[in-house]
Design a protein around this nucleic acid. Structure first.
Lengths: 208, 208
DNA sequence: GTCTATATTTCGATAGAC
DNA sequence: GTCTATCGAAATATAGAC
């Protein structure tokens, strides 16, 4: 369960996916070659092709791996009875910021958008599988609030975009400005997250 | 002023930029070759290199060209005295949706994010020049509302992200799902735009 | 300004020994 | 499972005629 029981084959595959994902995130889909991935892994290109039949398959597996488990942390928050509903909502938002800004997930939306032009299945797979899981987890908290009479939702689709849009924009901005000394000035993350949370809470809180 | 007075050199350069931008948007920076651009232009690759010294320079010029003028339409709305302040704000939002979803601008943020890893100057140039112009134009309308006592702004940075984030997310989603028959179902643009506008208006309207 | 031709490198992918 | 060696195609870029 913790990885130590995995067969060498499985752990090797896992290592390949981790390194490959880092390369794809750094240089994009078209900008990452199988040679560079193999070099980063310290193996030959032909050996890499032994594990994955081609670049497209490797990329798809990378995306799955990168998103795997992210929704579980959101669902754990949604099911945390020790928190008030509003606290769950704010904690879930903090977790989303941690997912998209703390790890290497910042370039994922842009990366998938780029690759979707070459691998059409990627787009639908992302929406139906990976993003839908995060969407469902955060909406679960909101539905709890609606059931309790605390929250109201007038436009579900717009609300989802108001939740994820600013986070994705912030993560992309950070990536764009990764080489700039003014990054923290142009994208003040803490201030942004707090303001985002406050505006969302105000938007969904029922005021009688 | 309308282009007919342009010298052949200038109009040729303009045509190259238009076609190149379309190719970059379609296939990304690394995924677009000088050969493909030349082929789309009906010229030889060496001729393309006569106009631009290299791929990076061509790309930077493309980005400048693509964003040129977009903020002028926003500023025209901000200066339209025939509209109420709230109508100006809603019209400016509609214009932003038209810019990012009606034309080929949808992939621009993701494209710039991808290219910023290879051309670091692109990131800051985008933030300081192109995005800052749109940002300033939309905030001009809001500041008018604040001065008139209609609007209030508690967190400027967060508000900017609440305005642009959902639009950028929507435009990227459309691009991701361009090959899917369920695009309009998964990303209902009109419903999304109306809901977005309503939530923003509610967030900045002063209620006494 | 546009062309043909080419130099040089790297790409994705495969063959086959070990 | 990893390696060396290689294939054909395509990449960025340049040289030089017209």
């Amino acid at each position: 369960m913790d990885g130590r029981d995995e067969s060498p084959t499985v752990s090797r595959r896992h290592e390949i996916l981790l390194v490959s994902a880092a390369e794809f995130i750094r240089s994009g889909y078209a900008g990452t070659s199988m040679s560079k991935i193999a070099r980063a892994l310290g193996m030959q290109k032909a050996s890499l092709y032994h594990h994955f039949p081609g670049k497209e398959d490797l990329f798809v597996a990378c995306i799955d791996e990168a998103f795997a488990g992210t929704h579980l942390r959101l669902e754990a928050i949604a099911d945390d009875a020790s928190l008030t509903i509003r606290a769950r909502f704010e904690a879930a938002l903090d977790e989303l910021y941690a997912i998209y800004l703390g790890q290497e997930m910042g370039m994922m939306p842009a990366l998938i958008a780029e690759a979707a032009a070459r691998i059409p299945a990627i787009g639908e797979q992302f929406f139906d599988g990976l993003f839908a899981q995060q969407d469902a987890a955060i909406m679960k908290v909101i539905e709890q609030g609606v059931a309790a009479g605390e929250f109201r939702v007038e436009n579900r689709e717009a609300l989802v975009h108001m939740i994820f849009g600013p986070i994705i924009m912030a993560s992309m901005s950070v990536q764009m400005l990764s080489g700039s000394s003014r990054r923290d000035c142009l994208v003040p993350l803490d201030e942004l997250r707090q303001g985002h949370k406050a505006m969302l809470v105000a938007a969904i809180t029922r005021t009688n």
